[in-house]
């Protein structure tokens, strides 16, 4: 008995480095970050006096940007999740070459260089870019559309394009173990193709759809590079405000408070999405 206990303890020691990474480089920094959000700075020095001033300021000045960020991120997350489902379903249901081709394309774009993709979209959407040239060339518009680039639309386009492969894979992973016979059984019992989707597929992939949604939402809500590079001056998302507190303004406590306010909002939206999916995508 003693020998077994010792062996188990010795084996558990293997977990120590991972716990050190998770604790020391993730949990402790987050907790400290939360603590800092209650401090203030004076003359570029942290003043260790807990107060709610940062949160009060966010409440009075930043509710708009937080709402805007949540709105645009929710839009991105919804579009991404929907398209991800379409592609994942195709990969899963197409036994022919198309399925493998789409899976290959998805895996290829998984790691394509985040900044490089943004750069490519800038050249695509710019005044002299391919999209505008094509539109003018086809006489769909007389003049290039400036609003393609440096607009909220551009932010949505770029982030959806970037996030899709990350959203497709978990959804595909959840579809894969579904037994195709159960879909035939649903048809046999009177379900239309759409009924099969509603009754036999969607209720079983809710966790994966939520993962895709949450991932897309969190990345969008925490991004500052995309809005800065393609969003124009009017598209200020919380990521931009947060990042500037650590750059020019050097107000870490306010930045920390903004981060946690945004995170809290994100968790609320994701929880709402979860409740929504559970309500509408449940087995009836």
């Amino acid at each position: 008995m003693m020998g077994v206990a010792v062996a188990t303890m010795r084996r558990n020691l293997l977990l120590v480095p991972a716990i050190a990474v998770l604790g020391g480089l993730f949990l402790v920094p987050l907790v400290w970050f939360l603590v800092v959000s209650f401090y203030r700075v004076s003359l570029f020095q942290l003043v260790h006096e807990p107060n709610l001033a940062n949160y009060a300021r966010i409440w009075s000045d930043y509710l708009g940007p937080i709402g805007y960020t949540a709105g645009i991120s929710a839009l991105i997350a919804v579009v991404t999740t929907l398209l991800a489902f379409v592609v994942a379903h195709l990969i899963w249901s197409r036994g022919d070459g198309w399925g493998n081709f789409l899976l290959g394309a998805t895996l290829l774009t998984l790691f394509g260089g985040y900044l490089v993709k943004i750069y490519a979209w800038r050249t695509l959407l710019g005044r002299e870019g391919i999209v505008n040239n094509t539109l003018v060339g086809l006489h769909l518009t007389d003049n290039p559309i400036d609003a393609l680039l440096y607009s909220p639309l551009a932010v949505v386009l770029v982030l959806v394009s970037y996030l899709l492969p990350f959203a497709i894979l978990p959804v595909y992973g959840a579809l894969r173990p579904i037994d195709p016979t159960s879909l035939e059984a649903a048809r046999d019992l009177g379900a239309s193709p759409w009924g099969v989707l509603r009754d036999a597929v969607l209720p079983r992939i809710v966790p994966a759809l939520l993962t895709a949604f949450a991932l897309s939402f969190l990345v969008s809500a925490g991004d500052y590079v995309t809005p800065r590079m393609v969003g124009g001056t009017r598209t200020q998302m919380m990521g931009n405000f947060i990042e500037s507190q650590f750059g020019l303004r050097m107000n870490m406590p306010l930045g920390a408070a903004m981060t946690f306010s945004t995170l809290l909002t994100s968790i609320a939206v994701i929880a709402a999405a979860w409740i929504g999916m559970r309500t509408f995508l449940r087995a009836k």
């Binding site: 037994d179 195709p180 016979t181 159960s182 879909l183 035939e184 059984a185 649903a186 048809r187 046999d188 019992l189 009177g190 379900a191 239309s192 009924g195 009754d199 036999a200 079983r204 087995a283």
Partner: peptide, 17 residues
């Protein structure tokens, strides 16, 4: 299949988990 008056018991059953 959904419009036919036949019903099937599948190999592997295809129950809804």
């Amino acid at each position: 299949p959904e419009k036919r008056a036949t019903n099937m018991v599948f190999q592997g059953y295809g129950l809804f988990p």
